[in-house]
Design a protein around this nucleic acid. Structure first.
Lengths: 163, 163
DNA sequence: GTTGGCGGTGATACACTGTAACACTCGGGC
DNA sequence: GCCCGAGTGTTACAGTGTATCACCGCCAAC
């Protein structure tokens, strides 16, 4: 249950890509990509499951370097503000952004109830329909969260093979 | 900001309807609609804005009757389990269900950033599209949350009239 | 070189959100 | 009377997030 490997470009390899993207974005926007922010992003991006702020703080703490949760929150604020990580409201946790758009709009998060892996996709048709529904209701959207909990394809395949 | 009135069937009148619906549902399913559960539902249904569990506990406490948050949580568990109230993940708060379906599927919550009012609607077209997207991704959904933050029609109308 | 401002960080404390565990009450069945 | 189960009261505690202040490093100004 705890050693479920990444199914696509997350995992340890994904962390490097996330870091590279962050470095580029910070250079473009003249932002400081400090060590703490890099470390927090690395920790989050090395997992396919959402990490809590305190988990991150613990993961980053070593003998001789204690990272307080409050520092992690500040780094997460920065990273989420610039679309490098996303907050999963239903879990109070964070995942690295798997895309390169970094605008944070129109995302759908698929959270597997079995293995805990989070998949991040976009669904333009859903966004279109939702936009129409909101317009009809006279509501002007600013941000939205769409999180689906269920069973991912990998777990369904395993269950089918085993059962 | 704090005296914004209900825009439709919420408010003090909505509470009575919610209670009536809850009583009927509990009778049908042979559930206990106890005083605490009724009081919690009344408190939640009398507001158009989502209430935190501790807000509810405070609202229910009087001289001579202290309602602990943990009791409120248990009542909320019961009420959410039977679709009488909904949890707003992005706010860690709860609202009374404005519909009579009580199955909790396919709901969209519209949260006004200005007045804090929550509107609850269904959007079958959005659900259809989302279902197709999930099927294409090989993901079997069990539950989903869809919460939109923005500006409600009432506030947009006021801003337009004032500005 | 020193000073002063500013953004980021460290650290403590605190507020808010949610759960675990246990005792008690109340009603129904034996 | 006794047991039993559901609901509630109570305390304690874990998890999540913010406020506040001090410190540090960098850079610009003097």
């Amino acid at each position: 249950m705890h050693d479920h490997a990444a199914t696509h470009d997350h995992g340890c390899g994904g962390a490097q890509a996330a870091i590279a993207r962050a470095e580029r974005l910070c250079r473009e926007r003249d932002l400081q990509f400090t060590r703490l922010r890099r470390d927090v992003l690395t920790a989050v991006a090395s997992q396919t499951r959402p990490m809590g702020a305190y988990d991150i703080a613990e993961a980053l703490s070593e003998p001789g370097r204690r990272v307080a949760a409050v520092s992690v929150y500040r780094a997460l604020d920065f990273l989420t503000e610039h679309g490098l990580v996303h907050r999963i409201a239903s879990r109070n946790a964070f995942v690295s952004c798997g895309h390169s758009h970094t605008d944070g709009a129109g995302l759908v998060f698929l959270i597997c109830r079995n293995c805990g892996t989070i998949d991040e996709t976009t669904a333009p048709e859903v966004e279109d329909q939702l936009g129409r529904t909101l317009a009809k209701a006279g509501f002007r959207p600013i941000s939205r969260i769409l999180e689906v909990e269920g069973e991912c394809g990998a777990c369904l395949g395993q269950a089918g093979a085993e059962g």
